[in-house]
């Protein structure tokens, strides 16, 4: 299946394939979940805060389907 991934904050820094606005596309085996995306992109897990799939909040074990749009946000701080 093919999914679209968008990395927010500094998560996409150093990842050449990632366009800051459009994100990137990933091919994954059927049955993959969000955790597999994070692993594939080699992002340290603790750097990922909120996750959404097609606009709804998701977790590492949320299953994915062809055409999903996964957004990964970094943890926040401040005010």
């Amino acid at each position: 299946m093919e999914i679209r991934v968008r990395l927010y904050g500094t998560l996409g820094a150093g990842l050449a394939a990632h366009d800051p606005i459009k994100g990137l596309r990933l091919h994954l085996p059927e049955g993959s979940d969000v955790g597999d995306v994070i692993e594939r992109l080699e992002i340290p897990r603790k750097k990922v805060g909120i996750i959404s799939v097609d606009g709804s909040l998701a977790k590492d074990d949320s299953p994915l389907q062809n055409g999903n749009f996964v957004r990964l946000y970094r943890p926040i701080f401040g005010g």
Binding site: Y8, G9, G49, I50, S52, L57, Y73, R74, I76, G78
Partner: peptide, 14 residues
Amino acid sequence: ELGSAVLVAPINAV
């Protein structure tokens, strides 16, 4: 890199 505007996307997401 993004200033305090780094918050826009995640706060909207939640």
